[in-house]
Nucleic acid binder design. Sequence first.
DNA 1: ATGCCTCAGCTCCTGAGA
Length: 254
Amino acid sequence: MQLATWNVNSLTVRLPQVLDWLAANPVDALVLQETKTTDDKFPREAIEAAGYHVAFFGQKTYNGVALLSKQNASQVQKNIPNFEDDMARVIAATVDDMRVIGAYFPNGQAPDSDKFVYKMRWLQALREWLQTELAQHPKLVLMGDFNITVDDRDVWDPVGLKDTIHCTVQEREHFQGLIDLGLRDAFRLFDQAEKSYSWWDYREFAFRRNRGLRIDHILVSEALVSRVSGCVIDKAPRKNERPSDHTPVVVTLG
DNA sequence: ATGCCTCAGCTCCTGAGA
């Protein structure tokens, strides 16, 4: 079984790439972030025609998430319960025997901004909700665009970007808070190439120069760790014409 | 360079992304 996450930066623009990628990588579930489309315009038919069930939760212009799955998804949850939020950032569902959560974490903009304050509040609410989710669903996968680098290995220039957005101590403490709930960073369960990233700026030939960040993650609960047989970043879609700035991350479970 | 790309939209500029 394979699960994947991809921030597509507009599903309207990237739908053909998503369908092509699924044809080549028929994963059992795929969560998307930054669909940037309202639910009435969501391309449900095209995705169902590709053999996937789909649950989605969007808004105009910004944010928006979706969960595609070969098996039917039940108990669909949109956003964090009991956390007031204007933004469509979370979609969760039960697929097979697993709770699958796709999330688009707030960007945060800058450590001294109001958006950073919101990011901290959102992270705290996510952690509290996940604690209850884990109690109900010990087999749980949290994946998406975290907008957090876990440590300096995830940063192309850790000196120059020290304490900047995605690299602050506060963000990393929140990431560790998720780990402390009993989750593991699937990518680091395995030996990986140095300078492995999941996002590259569109500017300054950042992809070609591999000036990137690893901010897209897949966390698996302890109950699933023994089943995880691999986790890779698929850089191929970043080489497409009109690529997303993010590329998919894929985990394989036995 | 508060820039460099890319996307959406109250679209020919602006806000946001990371």
